[in-house]
């Protein structure tokens, strides 16, 4: 165990490990690129859906079942399936990651919208606001903390799962995990895993700091 940790320390700080096209710097950039793009696409799909379901209070049954369906979908199976259908392309990775992220965002957005006090909605309507004004100027700001929680959860899951890109021969930090696995090189596997966990934790902390700055004027909501 001690030897493993010593090896890991040396692996993480050695300069040749960080440089070049298969260096940590490049793999880190790839990993961030996959994760952020997938989360953005997922948000672009999931936010409008969650907002509309929350606003109209229709289709909640679908939203809740979608989330448990999404959790049940085996990512490895999905990646392999899309890979066999599409051949060597980035599609398997992005489709699997987006499918993973959408449910968390939809359900949290929906939960945030339903948590808005009905009296506030009624007051907004009573003032003559149109439905889109109620949605964007009243409900959305009030639901934002929970929406952000959903985005953070989705991002953590996507960062951890983007490892799988390496399985279908792409890059990202998963390269170290799968190459290490193939070469029985535990130090490399451990290094990749630690880096992924660090990226996920750092991104989560950054988003939660952003959340605190954005909602300074509000009483803290439990995360």
């Amino acid at each position: 165990m001690y030897e493993l940790l010593k090896g890991l320390g040396a692996w993480l700080v050695s300069s040749e490990q960080w440089a070049g096209s298969d260096g940590i710097g490049h793999r880190l950039t790839e990993h961030l690129q996959y994760s952020l793009l997938a989360t953005l696409v997922a948000a672009a799909i999931a936010l409008p859906v969650g907002l509309l379901i929350g606003h109209t209070r229709r289709g909640a049954f679908i939203a809740i079942n979608l989330s448990s369906f999404g959790r049940a979908l085996p990512t490895v199976g999905l990646v392999v399936l899309v890979f066999l259908a599409s051949g060597l392309s980035m599609w398997p990775v992005y489709i699997a990651l987006v499918a993973l992220a959408v449910p968390s965002i939809v359900t949290n957005t929906y939960a945030g919208m339903t948590a808005v006090d009905p009296e506030v909605r009624d007051a907004a309507r009573g003032q003559g606001m149109r439905w889109h004004q109620v949605l964007l100027q009243v409900e959305l700001p009030l639901a934002l903390p929970l929406i952000m929680t959903g985005l953070r959860l989705a991002l953590i899951q996507v960062v951890a799962t983007a490892t799988i890109a390496a399985y279908v021969s792409f890059g990202g930090l998963g390269r170290y995990v799968f190459d290490g696995l193939a070469q029985r090189d535990l130090v490399q596997v451990l290094g990749g895993a630690v880096l992924v966990a660090v990226v996920a934790v750092v991104l989560d902390l950054a988003l939660s700091a952003l959340q605190r700055v954005l909602f300074r004027h509000r009483p803290a909501t439990p995360a």
Partner: peptide
């Protein structure tokens, strides 16, 4: 934090 470690890495690290 445990949740953020990729599952494949957890399995491999348990191998020893």
């Amino acid at each position: 934090i445990l949740f953020t470690i990729p599952s494949i890495a957890v399995f491999v690290l348990l191998l020893p």
